[in-house]
Amino acid sequence: MSVEWIEQVLQLTVQMGTVYLLASLGEIYAERSGVLNLGLEGTMIMGAATSFIFSLAYGHFAAIIMSIIVGALMGFILSILVVDMKLNQVIVGLALTMLGIGLSGFITFPEIRKNLLLRLNPYLPQEILATQQSEKLPEIPIPLLSDIPILGKMFFSHNILVYFSLIASLIMWFILFKTSIGLTIRSVGENPSMADSLGVNVYLVRRVTVILSGAFASLAGAYFFIGFHPFWREEVTAGRGFIALALVILATWNPLRAILGAYLFGGVETFQYRLQLFGLGAQSPYFLAMLPYIVTIITLIIISTESIKKRLGAPASLGIPYSREE
């Protein structure tokens, strides 16, 4: 086990984990304000599809911006349904996931994709219209910092979205726990009627956090496609949105703990294939794959006790639509 080996494993772990980190960051805000966004998977896959099409048509920058917009739009739709119309969050969220899976498969179906691409940019050559892959986001190692042993490869030799995910989790942790905005969000998730009586616009807060969760989930999908493995297939995210949902619980609704959790999930995915080659895990590869879920279940059991729940600050009115008693 040389230093290079450790560096490489950690680098790949971070690359994989960033998918989960980005998706869970927005979801943490939504759940902190009391809304469960089960449409995460569908939003993520729409983000991947959007980034696929726009990176072919206009390049990476447009792909990232457009996927954020599409994600925010899906978050907006969800917010109308569950915040304003007060529909069941589980059902609407799952419906949004199905919509996302279906719609992403539809817009990327070869013929339809071709037409879409030609509308977006009529000068695209034939091979771009037919291809299933797009250019990968370039890696931008940060000078000096990337030369630090181990940490340099782990945190400072990545593409721009990985850096963004790390900075965003720091900022989002700060906002959530150290500012009045964060306090407002948490109070809305804790006791919305109390917050309302104190003059907080519960609906507005919830709508903003749900839009935010959509944008982040979509960005996670875009990262997964153009930043990790740029080859399109239907259902490309393969359930990773649901893993991100589990991760939110594992991280106990804390953006900093989400970093650790994301890298745990990412590390397991990276390690699985290496352990096989050491003669471990090849006999039962599913064992390794289930480890993060066991940790999640244990976390769930622990936080289900009332006292710990209070201490960790699990949002008390998560999943409960708020309506003013008038």
Partner: peptide, 23 residues
């Protein structure tokens, strides 16, 4: 290296890298 899927590009990627780097 086994990935236990027929279609899973991201898993095939990890498995391929493991084969190149480890062995």
């Amino acid at each position: 290296s086994w990935i236990f899927e027929w279609v899973a590009p991201e898993k095939a990627r990890s498995a391929a890298i493991a084969l190149i780097e480890e062995k």
